[in-house]
Amino acid sequence: MALIRGNELVADEFAHVADGAEIPAHGPVLVGLEQWQAGRETLLARGAPVGIRLRSDQSPELVASDLPRLALVALEFPKFRDGRAYSYARILRERYGYKGEIRAVGDVLMEQLLFMVRTGFDAFEIESDDPLGQFRTAIGDFSVWYQPAADGRKTAVQLRHSRRPSSS
């Protein structure tokens, strides 16, 4: 399983802790919502970054007030067709101004990567023979954007009218 962050392959420093499993004594950990809610103070007291993993039926609205303390939010795609995480990522970035890592996990495939980037994901757990090659190809697919999203890219509408000298 490869991890891409930004535009590079990186090692994953987070230990993925399954629900009910023991939390390691040291180091960054990625836990599920229930584990976080059951022991957030203990987790934070460890002094290492904490990440939270949300299933597709768990909206980030559930952890809104915790976001400043979370280094990572992993949003799950149980099947690539389950598109709820696209909304969750935008809510994290645009409604809550979340600046930490938003990671796509689960059924993360090449042909959906660009939509993930646009909606605010900046890290991707990919199962593939050539994850970085596929990622770089995918994000190069388009250069025109019709609608604003979390990535801040200028839309066609904005570009059309910014060329006029009269617009201030």
């Binding site: 067709r81 909304s87 959906q112 939509f115 909606t119 019709y146 609608q147 999203a149």
Partner: peptide, 13 residues
């Protein structure tokens, strides 16, 4: 039409 084309958030409704 333009708004909805290749909308990154709403392509997997």
């Amino acid at each position: 039409r333009q708004y909805s084309f290749l909308h990154p958030e709403f392509s997997y409704l």
